[in-house]
Design a protein around this nucleic acid. Sequence first.
DNA 1: ATGAAAGCGCTAACAC
DNA 2: GTGTTAGCGCTTTCAT
Lengths: 334, 334
Amino acid sequence: MERRVTLQDVAERAGTSRTTAHYVLTGRDREMRIGEDTRRRVLRAANELRYRPDLMARGLRTQVTRTIALIADAVASEAYAGDLVAGALAATAARGYLLFVCETGEDAELEEALVEELLARHVDAFLYATYFTRDVVVPAALRDQRVALLNCRAPGLPSVVPDEVGAGRTAAEALLSAGYRDGIWLVGEPAPHVVASVERLRGIEEALTAAGVRAAGTVPCAWWPESAFERFGALLDDGQEPAAVICANDRVAMGVYQALAVRGRRVPDDLAVVSFDDSDLAVWLHPALTSVALPHRELAAIAVDLLLGEGGPPPGEHRVPMPLRRRESVAVRG
Amino acid sequence: MERRVTLQDVAERAGTSRTTAHYVLTGRDREMRIGEDTRRRVLRAANELRYRPDLMARGLRTQVTRTIALIADAVASEAYAGDLVAGALAATAARGYLLFVCETGEDAELEEALVEELLARHVDAFLYATYFTRDVVVPAALRDQRVALLNCRAPGLPSVVPDEVGAGRTAAEALLSAGYRDGIWLVGEPAPHVVASVERLRGIEEALTAAGVRAAGTVPCAWWPESAFERFGALLDDGQEPAAVICANDRVAMGVYQALAVRGRRVPDDLAVVSFDDSDLAVWLHPALTSVALPHRELAAIAVDLLLGEGGPPPGEHRVPMPLRRRESVAVRG
DNA sequence: ATGAAAGCGCTAACAC
DNA sequence: GTGTTAGCGCTTTCAT
């Protein structure tokens, strides 16, 4: 591994000074009125030597590094967080930034330490992310940094979150517009501290009420297949005749499918199903599931745009629409 | 945002020189025989000023940055890659390194450019990862760097991959030891260019042959639920009576479950199912699926250990065992 | 138009 | 035991 080639080397080979070489290599030669052929010599020398500026040295001098930090509570849980990371990655790369990724497991001390470390490395900005939407309190050291919250919220800080109320409306309307009015059940227990739960419910109520419809009831299962399988199965065995269900998420829908399958009932003819998240499951289920998508990549892209945009991110909450992915789990009613 | 506090500031407040401050703050005061009370003063000053060394400046001087780069073809696809990233993250963090994460989408030019960029930032080492196991050709610039391949292989380079042959054996033995001999079908078409396919098949053959058993046949479906649903369903409708299946992966198993459910057949009583990957699906399926796990986090942890270990990673392939996760999809035969 | 020189904050050889 | 000094490679002000 030979010594790095430095600006000095380029300047020497071009028979000029570092300053001159510097200006032509950073493309500011026009403003310095550097001679066309000096310019040529520098460019050629740089090429021949395969000169690459030392970004650490540059960073030390300029105090800007073109790096940003993503601080997330989890990067892989639930198969969701991955898309957040991927989205952030793509968006930062597109702007020529490199991304430090950190995972905190919600450990506040670790968070503080990480922020210190990242500050010591002069990252230009911070993305603070959570794998499910919630309110957070960010480390104090972050408060006077350039920061955007991704999929979470804190008073006074710029944040990007999915429009869960709209999603609730969308889900209900998918059923209403297909002709369902009576026998619409909600599956998945309400969770008062989970933003997604509260807001989806609100959206659903809104849309239903606006159509003069009331939900037939709620199946209070955990947001997992097994629990949904059992509780929704029990509902069926009770002799209830749901016409349609709105599931808390795709995993719940999976449990509903299983409960139906065991009893020989069919989606969508015996029961219409809509859900939230649009995870991989939605297309794996049979028949494929109509689901309101959580646009993780887009959330991340927007957060990065805000973060790196002129003048820094405008404070306040940015709500990103959750689009409906129509598939085969809702039949139009006669 | 006030000026950073520098070593100079600490030294001044402690009434000593930068050198002295430096040695005590880096814990090398013993070797320099620095006065106990000088030591105290320096420590106190640093504390009071909340001194944090500028890691960029240090890096420029020492040429080591305690950063490493993860270059992956994909960081979120298929809900697998996330665990690779999370594993690498945890392992590097545990050693006090920060991780740059990059995604290439298999674009070779982008890869070259990224490596240049990372080199310009003086990352100490590289992790080169793929989201499914395969042979790769790494960018030329990486060849003389400290590098470990994660979930992929290239001649002459250190790599960490899952032991898929062993996994094949494990899957077959799970069935054999439960008393299955006849009517064992393989579900999922062989893919000659996919390491997992070739090696799992080899392991399965080995174990079966050793027990004097032959597979009843192969259902050549794509490795997705829908395809498995159709092709395996067709097998059932053909009047075949499989006793057990080894699925190419959990998604295929999902398709098999669906085909069974529609026909009123039960797992595990009518059919035993084993699979590979042990993804989230395995526990979501009903009944829960016995699957041979792809230990992504462990692969990553081992790769990081090799990479950062004394003397750098030993070249050659490191095979990591794939453990069987026994659940309810295999019943012991009478 | 080009170059000399100072300095970003840290480390380490060397002198006292 | 402690301090002086010379860089790491780059950017930028200021002379020329």
